[in-house]
């Protein structure tokens, strides 16, 4: 009985946290980046300072912790399939590729995007030149994660519903 609850609860948390994470990733990439560029180019407009000051820190807070929660719930969900998945054994290679993509994305969030955003937001001392570099690195890494999310979500779904592709 207890063992039947664990996968259900883990999957529920995995979906909730995953939607929060990837939803914010798509917000950053499909909405905010263009909005900030437009606001900065809008002479006489209100500018992007409000977004940078009030929206970005909150969005990044939910983004990075949701990323971690998604991974932990995913690892719990894999349970005994964790090692076969990550070593791409047999049919577990399908979820394994999804898990690797999600893991790489998590490492990019905590190892690249967040440290660079701390410089951009002024939470970590940086010169203007360092901030400009950090902004570009964070932007491109965020774009890489958006690209990676496309196969990642296919492989996540295909692990249980991939008959059409993988038999």
């Amino acid at each position: 009985m207890e063992n039947e609850w664990v996968p259900l609860i883990a999957r529920w948390i995995h979906f909730l946290a995953g939607i929060t994470w990837i939803g914010l990733l798509y917000y950053f990439n499909f909405v905010q980046a263009a909005a900030v560029a437009t606001a900065n180019a809008d002479q006489g407009g209100p500018g992007a300072a409000g977004i940078t000051k009030y929206v970005v820190p909150r969005a990044l807070l939910w983004f990075r912790w949701a990323a971690l929660a998604t991974w932990i719930a995913g690892a719990a969900l894999l349970g005994p399939r964790f090692m076969p998945a990550f070593t791409l054994q047999g049919s577990d290679a399908v979820i394994g590729i999804g898990a690797w993509l999600g893991t790489i994305m998590l490492l990019f969030v905590w190892g690249v995007i967040w440290p660079n955003q701390k410089k951009v937001l002024g939470l970590k001392p940086a010169t203007d030149a360092e901030k400009a570099t950090a902004r570009r690195v964070a932007f491109l890494t965020s774009r890489v994660n958006t690209a990676l999310s496309i196969p990642m979500l296919l492989f996540m779904g295909a692990s249980a519903h991939g008959v059409a592709l993988f038999g």
Partner: peptide
């Protein structure tokens, strides 16, 4: 050459190409 990741369309196309590559890899593995 322009970085495809600078545009949303380029990012999505990059993701789709990567998907095709990884599906081929997965089919070879299983």
């Amino acid at each position: 050459m322009k970085n495809p990741l600078d545009s949303i369309l380029g990012t999505i196309i990059t993701g789709l190409v990567l998907t095709l590559v990884l599906v081929a890899v997965a089919k070879a593995l299983i």
